[in-house]
């Protein structure tokens, strides 16, 4: 198990290298010049040249990448072109907010998704099943910027229970987490329903029932645990979706997370910032999926990593 985890962690290296090369190429291929954006064209040529030199943008691309990679290996992503502050510092300020939001919406997604999925599976082809699946379809289809605003309108404007924007009170997290978690919940609901239905048709379930096991025990020990494996892998993939969806949700709710930092960085062609954020996001994504793979073994003893 440890050996497997170590191997997987080693695989992180090539992933990060390719991601960094790709992002590096992409930010240099899209039109737009960070110096131009910063000085807004009203600067003098001397200023532009000085700034370009300070940022190292006057050097060959390969050298620029080399410098970036060498520094990044030492945990230094350089300074943001826009704010002049160290990229790692800015990410460190914003990452906790995004992790909080992602974790909270994951909780919402798993709780809501599994409950809906189980209800639907157990009430197969009855009203609760249809209701749950319609809800799930709606959850996937609702665009989060719209759904978020509707939640704000109801809970923040009319009922005044929760703040509309910001991150200053614990209640601030609720609406963004629900907004972000809803579409993931829908996917989890649909998948856990079909997975559970599949498992419940298996012969070992019939055997368990036949030997007089209580129904909730059948469900929990034999049904759910077996049904969870595909669900787990989709949860891992959903984390990527949540990190991406956070961009929109953070904007709607004024949540000071990494997603908004990324958007601003892209609009401003803040190359060091874009690279830093993408590397951090890629690392998180790989780490989460590794954690999920390790979880398989816990859920299903047949899976062993050796």
């Amino acid at each position: 198990m440890q050996r497997y985890a170590a191997q997987r962690l080693l695989q992180l290296a090539p992933v990060l290298v390719s991601v960094s090369v790709l992002v590096f190429l992409m930010v240099h291929l899209v039109p737009g010049d960070p110096v131009q954006v910063m000085l807004q064209d009203y600067g003098t040529p001397a200023q532009a040249a000085a700034l370009r030199h300070t940022l190292g943008l006057d050097r060959p691309l390969a050298v620029q990448y080399g410098v970036f990679a060498w520094r990044a290996l030492h945990g230094d992503f350089g300074r943001s072109i826009r704010s002049g502050r160290p990229v790692s510092g800015e990410i460190a300020l914003r990452l906790p907010y995004t992790l909080q939001l992602t974790a909270a919406s994951m909780v919402v997604a798993i709780a809501l998704g599994l409950v809906l999925g189980m209800i639907a599976a157990l009430q197969h082809r009855r009203l609760p099943d249809y209701a749950a699946m319609v809800a799930a379809l709606a959850g996937i289809s609702l665009p989060s910027f719209w759904f978020g605003l509707v939640l704000i309108l109801i809970f923040s404007y009319y009922l005044r229970w929760l703040p509309a924007a910001g991150a200053d009170t614990p209640g601030s997290l609720i609406l963004p987490a629900v907004t972000l978690g809803t579409s993931a919940a829908s996917i989890i609901a649909r998948l856990s329903r079909s997975s559970l239905l599949e498992v419940l048709r298996q012969e070992f379930i019939r055997t368990a029932r036949a030997k007089g096991m209580r129904e909730w025990r059948v469900l929990y020990r034999h049904g759910l645990r077996n049904a969870l494996i595909p669900v787990l892998s989709i949860i891992g993939l959903q984390v990527a979706g949540l990190l991406g969806g956070a961009v929109i949700v953070e904007t709607v709710f004024g949540w000071p997370g990494l997603g908004r930092l990324a958007i601003d960085a892209i609009f401003n062609r803040d190359i060091p910032m874009i690279q830093g954020i993408v590397l951090v996001a890629a690392t998180i994504f790989v780490a989460v999926n590794l954690a999920i793979d390790l979880l398989y073994a816990l859920v299903d003893p047949r899976i062993r990593y050796s």
Partner: peptide, 8 residues
């Protein structure tokens, strides 16, 4: 120029 002030 080292300041790179957009308003310079």
């Amino acid at each position: 120029p080292q300041t790179a002030a957009p308003g310079a």
